[in-house]
């Protein structure tokens, strides 16, 4: 890891602990309480991850993923995005686990430090499972529909993708 991002990361950890010391927080106990929540959340992902990995395995081994990439090529080429990232781009707004599996596939097929791998990483980190979030929040509040949210969210995602293609 480079000195800059290393310093930022270790600095962040130091800052968190320093703030906790200043406010008299039990760091050891609190860390474990939070870690347990994270652990439970992560383990609960396995069934979804397994389903998504099965799908990605079939998509990649059958050549369907490449076919989707070629079909999406007019759009990805226009945005200067690598074709290999097409499955991840399409899955990202729908499923978090599925897009993580697709990101892994990009790492495996193109290399983690390739242009495709880096673009997929940035897009993964600057996007959200739009359809899922909307379903959960609106469903929880009993709101049937809310104007503009979906088109604006998708437009912002498209904008992020275009920005990645242009800047990277």
């Amino acid at each position: 890891m480079s000195a800059a991002s290393g310093t930022a990361l270790v600095g962040l950890v130091a800052f968190i602990v320093l703030r906790a010391v200043m406010t008299g927080v039990d760091v050891y106990g609190t860390f474990q309480r939070g870690a347990e929540k994270g652990m439970r959340g992560a383990v609960a992902l396995l069934p979804t991850l397994s389903a998504m990995m099965l799908m990605l395995a079939l998509l990649n081994a059958s050549g369907l993923a490449q076919l989707i990439g070629r079909l999406a090529a007019p759009i990805t080429d226009w945005l200067h995005l690598p074709q290999e990232a097409a499955p991840m781009l399409l899955l990202r707004p729908l499923t978090g686990s599925g897009s993580l599996a697709a990101l892994e596939a990009v790492f495996e097929n193109c290399g983690v430090d390739s242009r495709a791998g880096r673009i997929a990483s940035v897009l993964m980190g600057s996007s959200e499972t739009i359809f899922y979030t909307m379903a959960v929040y609106l469903g929880g509040a009993g709101v049937r529909k809310l104007p503009w949210v979906l088109p604006v969210s998708l437009a912002a995602y498209f904008f992020s993708a275009a920005l990645c293609g242009w800047l990277m």
Partner: peptide, 11 residues
């Protein structure tokens, strides 16, 4: 990170 962020929340 859930462990670390819990510390952030607690402080």
């Amino acid at each position: 990170w859930s462990g670390l962020m819990e510390v952030v929340a607690e402080s």
